[in-house]
């Protein structure tokens, strides 16, 4: 078995198992940490797909910054743990079972739909040059320059919005 295939299964298993546990866990701190594990598995998959830059960016931005934000919020809102545990139990008894079944049906449907495309070039024309960071940077700043500027404004708006929403101004809302 080629090494790449083994690595794919290892990282895919890590990603799927940790993601499943994220959704099932009752303690939100554990959920956040398991999601970080999922990101690391996905980063491994990105490296296998010849995208080391995006893999590292994912770890820096997603796992290193966004998840820290989640963790801070979870710790800040440390509602008494029992309440957090109770609030994920669903009242109707059969809802979760039906939900699980529907999820499995959805997954099967997605898998069927996605694998029906046969007209793609399965073997990649390996243009390694187009994957280098320099090439990606050039494309971002030339073809996708508008998207780049738009996302910077988006981040600015998000920052201002987050600070405004979360600040304590009594009597303003």
């Amino acid at each position: 078995m080629p090494v790449n295939l083994i690595l794919f299964y290892v990282f895919a298993a890590i990603a799927v198992i940790t993601t499943l546990l994220v959704v099932v866990q009752s303690n939100p701190v554990y959920s956040v940490l398991l999601l970080i594990g999922s990101f690391i598995g996905l980063a491994g998959l990105y490296v296998l797909l010849n995208a080391p830059f995006v893999a590292v960016i994912q770890i820096i931005v997603y796992a290193g910054a966004i998840m820290v934000l989640f963790l801070f919020v979870v710790m800040l809102l440390n509602a008494p743990r029992e309440e957090v545990v109770q609030s994920n139990l669903i009242d109707a008894s059969g809802t979760r079972a039906i939900g699980g079944l529907l999820a499995i049906a959805f997954a099967a449907e997605l898998a069927w739909a996605l694998t029906r495309s046969r007209g793609l070039a399965v073997s990649a024309p390996d243009e390694r040059a187009s994957y280098s960071v320099a090439a990606i940077g050039q494309r971002i700043f030339q073809e996708y320059a508008f998207a780049f500027e738009a996302t910077s404004i988006l981040i600015l708006v998000a920052m201002v919005g987050a600070v405004t929403l979360a600040s304590r101004h009594s009597g303003k809302r």
């Binding site: 970080i36 590292v56 770890i59």
Partner: peptide, 9 residues
């Protein structure tokens, strides 16, 4: 840089 960000955890 990425691994140092992980150290915060």
């Amino acid at each position: 840089f990425a691994v140092t960000s992980m150290g915060v955890y």
